[in-house]
């Protein structure tokens, strides 16, 4: 398990991270979301030893993360990092060897990942002549070529076409199934919601929410969609602990405070007319994220 514990980092007078803690479990895909400048990249750079924290620590398998353990981590930086004039195949072999693979194993592994990511025919090309999408795939191959113990990927899906997104999603899920903890950041919230086991929302260098999307939604209180065939929501007024969030045609979205009785809502709805819809609402991650960001803006 990868643990981020109480990280703090300042750049001059600006706090980049404040007491940031979360963990990524074995076999888990963890989505790391936040606005630009929220601290995602700084967190990942600290985890990879690129930056040193002012306080806090990163732990791996219960022990402080050192160079030897970090050498087995696969990493995709935010701004892609490969030698532009080096041939792709040779570059992957070189990276595999730097991470400890023998020459022959490095060659086999490079070939395997190039084939898996559809780049085998480009093995002899310099990285700089590859398209953006192929460079992205190459970067993923570079992170995977030595069979990493953990994956830390900063915006791996940025700029990918839908097919490439599917390929990369498949690879990440596959790695997680093999027990590899996968931490990645993204602004593509639908993708994060679909792909991740758990999500962490970071705001102003602090983690404001961590859990499955369902757990995050529950933290915001229970919500119900009710359709009583009326385009007015006055019927819901006065139900204790219930507030109307919005009206869409004949459907009303209600927010229930913790402890309020959904059966009381159902009875009130029946009194209004025939109930065509009565279901629990799970807000999408994008909405949860916007709520978190709007709190930041409000501040």
């Amino acid at each position: 398990m990868l643990e981020i514990l109480g990280l703090e980092k300042r750049f001059g007078d600006t706090w980049a991270l404040r007491d940031l803690s979360f963990e990524v479990r074995e076999g888990e895909v963890f989505g790391f979301v936040g606005s630009n400048g929220a601290g995602k990249t700084t967190t990942m750079r600290i985890a990879m030893g690129v930056l040193a924290p002012d306080r806090g620590e990163v732990r791996w398998a219960g022990a402080p993360l050192g160079f030897a353990a970090r050498q087995r981590f696969g990493y995709m930086p935010e701004e892609r990092g490969l030698y532009p004039t080096m041939r792709l195949g040779e570059q992957l072999q070189y990276l595999a060897r730097l991470h400890g693979l023998r020459q022959e194993d490095a060659r086999r592994s490079a070939e395997l990942w190039l084939e898996r990511l559809g780049l085998l025919e480009r093995a002899g090309d310099e990285v700089q002549v590859l398209s953006h999408g192929n460079q992205q795939r190459a970067q993923l191959a570079a992170a995977l070529v030595f069979s990493p113990a953990a994956l830390i990927l900063d915006e791996p899906f940025a700029g990918l076409d839908p097919v490439a997104v599917d390929v990369m999603s498949g690879v990440l899920r596959e790695q997680a199934q093999q027990g590899v903890p996968v931490l990645f950041s993204s602004h593509q919230l639908e993708l994060v919601e679909r792909l991740c086991d758990r999500v962490g929302i970071i705001r102003g260098g602090q983690m404001v929410a961590v859990g499955t999307v369902a757990e995050l939604a529950k933290d915001g209180g229970e919500r119900l969609w009710v359709d009583v065939g009326s385009d007015e929501s006055a019927w819901a007024f006065g139900i204790p602990g219930v507030s109307v969030l919005r009206q869409e045609g004949t459907r009303t979205l209600l927010a229930l405070d913790g402890g309020s009785d959904d059966q009381a809502v159902l009875r009130a709805a029946i009194r209004q007319g025939p109930v065509r819809e009565f279901r629990r609402d799970v807000p999408p991650l994008s909405e949860l994220f916007r709520n978190a960001v709007s709190e930041e803006v409000a501040r």
Binding site: R45, G49, Y75, P77, E79
Partner: peptide, 15 residues
């Protein structure tokens, strides 16, 4: 080149 191509960031984890 290593720095501006961000290769250094990938390398420091390995070397």
């Amino acid at each position: 080149q290593e720095k501006t191509s961000r290769m250094a960031e990938v390398l420091v984890a390995a070397v």
